[in-house]
Design a protein around this nucleic acid. Structure first.
Length: 494
RNA sequence: GGCCCCAUCGUCUAGUGGCCUAGGACGUCGGCCUCUCAAGCCGAAAACAGGGAUUCGAAUUCCCUUGGGGCCA
């Protein structure tokens, strides 16, 4: 059997990371079986339609490295792949079901339906259509008057759903509503459209989230009504937020675009998502997988049954691992857009600026979890800094005078240092600390504050090299002035 | 409320009747390293939801309870 799976999102906004995890499973399954992965747009709910959504969906999938074999943009043998372009088909299929006695027209007014529902609720019964039009003689409701088409669900017995992961699940037919298949505006409901399309597009495995499990018996009934072979159903667990509820915006970033903007690497996010609800097992403790390894190792049958909580902490860790595994050149390339976005460097990047950036890359590499983190870590190199407060310029267990002396000595040393690079600086500065009777940390901290006005920054010498001699000396001079003024002032008061 | 799904450290998980004194990872805590912060290394705390049953033996099988989640309104 040829494996054919699909991702069938509604174009209602940016794709959600929880849904994307399910896409990852679909894609992996398709690729490892040399099958096809189909993208289909389910836009039959016109009230929630967002025009830019289609682009957001395709961009997100592409960014994560998931390609599709058939879809709205690439076409394919079973198109069109947008449901709103298939309306005639659904209408035709609904009529077919009426002819077969599996569906009927219903012209009950909304008021009547509301009345029925209210009565049922009053009796503590689940609200369902009462079958008012179900037993009217054929033709009683004219095709020309406003009406819906409903599925004639058997009143007795059970409908069994076969799920690859959960096994057989039985639903009592009497609890299944006479589902509307075609709305009065001629649009199909989800249930009709999904069954018709999955069948016509030869989908072999419907891999979707658990939230669809309760509607699956309706789908099974529809397959039976049409006389079609149902696909293999695979309901995979939901992705939850840290509070155990379905992951949503209030938990933090949920759209792929947001993860991209924060500087997650697509390969890291992909890796993390693949491991959310699946693990290689057999005692294998590997967690970092290439895309190829995942395609090879992924096992649909090993997907967990219980919902998984999305851990931003673990994703951050994994992203850091991927960042550190990048070559300096590759990381530089990925970092540049973030520096540009923050307005720290121009676009395109001048050649001499590139050299400076290249000095920085190895220094920031093991200090960032997300690419965006590079901005607050290095901004002081590109922009002017707030003059540091004098108290911050006084070294640990040191007086203001000692600190000033340390600054002046360092200034003197750096003024004529050739070449002005980290390798040359470091031994000289260490010697200077010794000569001044200071610990290296005492001296370096003062200088760090002087040049960055930060107490946390990348390693000092590389930072100064990137800053350049002129700016370094300028900032040291500024710090000296601040400290000198401070000393004069405090001594005047004393 | 009805129906359905699920249940191992805080989180992701390994485990499919004896290998379990329940393993790994993230996070947390402590230490080492160290110019700050990281990274790295070492170490620690941390779980089989509860109760029955089956069995010589149960995290692993069955039942009930509890808890969580989803769907329908």
């Amino acid at each position: 059997m040829t494996v054919r799976v699909r991702f069938a999102p509604s174009p209602t906004g940016h794709p959600h990371i929880g849904n994307i995890r399910t896409v990852v499973f679909n894609w992996l399954f398709a690729r490892q079986n040399n099958g096809q992965f189909v993208l289909r747009i389910e836009d039959t709910d016109r009230t929630r339609y967002v025009p830019e959504a289609l682009r957001a969906i395709t961009e997100s999938l592409r960014w994560l490295g998931m390609d599709w074999d058939e879809g709205p943009d690439v076409g394919g043998p079973y198109g069109p792949y947008v449901q709103s372009e298939r309306l005639a088909l659904y209408r035709q299929k609904a009529e077919e079901l009426i002819e077969k006695g599996w569906a009927y027209r219903c012209n009950c007014s909304p008021e009547r339906l509301e009345r029925v529902r209210a009565a049922q609720r009053a009796q503590g019964k689940p609200p369902m259509y009462d079958g008012h039009c179900r037993n009217k003689p054929p033709g009683a409701v004219s095709p020309d008057e406003p009406h819906v088409i409903r599925l004639k669900v058997p009143r007795e017995g059970k409908t069994v759903v076969h799920d690859l992961l959960k096994g057989e699940i039985a639903f009592e037919n009497r609890l299944i509503d006479d589902q509307i298949l075609l709305k009065s505006d001629g649009y199909p409901t989800y249930h009709l459209a999904v069954v018709v399309d999955d069948h016509l597009m030869h989908i072999s495995h419907v891999i979707r989230a658990d939230e669809w499990l309760p509607s699956t018996p309706k789908h099974v009934l529809l397959y039976r009504a049409f006389g079609w072979e149902p696909p293999v159903f695979v309901h995979v667990p939901l992705v939850l937020g840290p509070d155990g509820k379905k992951l949503s915006k209030r938990h933090g970033a949920v759209s792929v675009a947001e993860f991209k903007r924060q500087g997650y690497l697509p390969e890291a996010l992909f890796n993390y998502l693949a491991l959310l609800g699946w693990a290689p097992g057999e005692g294998d403790e590997q967690e970092i997988f290439t895309r190829e390894e995942l395609i090879e190792r992924f096992d649909l049958r090993r997907v967990k049954l219980s919902p998984a909580v999305f851990s931003y902490e673990k994703l951050d860790w994994m992203n850091g691992v991927y960042i550190r595994n990048l070559s300096d050149e590759a990381l530089l390339e990925r970092l540049i857009p973030f520096w540009q976005e923050a307005g720290l460097i121009p676009s395109p990047v001048p050649a001499e600026e590139l050299e400076r950036l290249m000095i920085l890359v190895p220094l920031v590499k093991e200090r960032i979890k997300r690419l965006r983190d590079v901005v607050p870590l290095t901004d002081f190199i590109f922009t002017e800094i707030e003059p540091p407060a004098p108290e911050k310029l006084i070294g640990k267990k040191m007086t203001a005078r000692q600190s000033l002396e340390a600054l002046r000595s360092a200034h003197e040393l750096l003024k004529n240092l050739v070449p002005f690079d980290a390798a040359t600086m470091e031994p000289r500065m260490r010697q200077l600390a010794k000569d001044l009777g200071l610990k290296a940390g005492q001296l370096f901290t003062i200088i760090r504050v002087a040049i960055s006005n930060k107490k946390v920054a990348p390693p000092l010498f590389g930072t100064m090299e990137a800053l350049g001699r002129q700016k370094t000396l300028q900032r040291l001079a500024q710090a000296e002035e601040i400290l000198a003024a401070y000393i004069t002032e405090t001594e005047a008061h004393a």
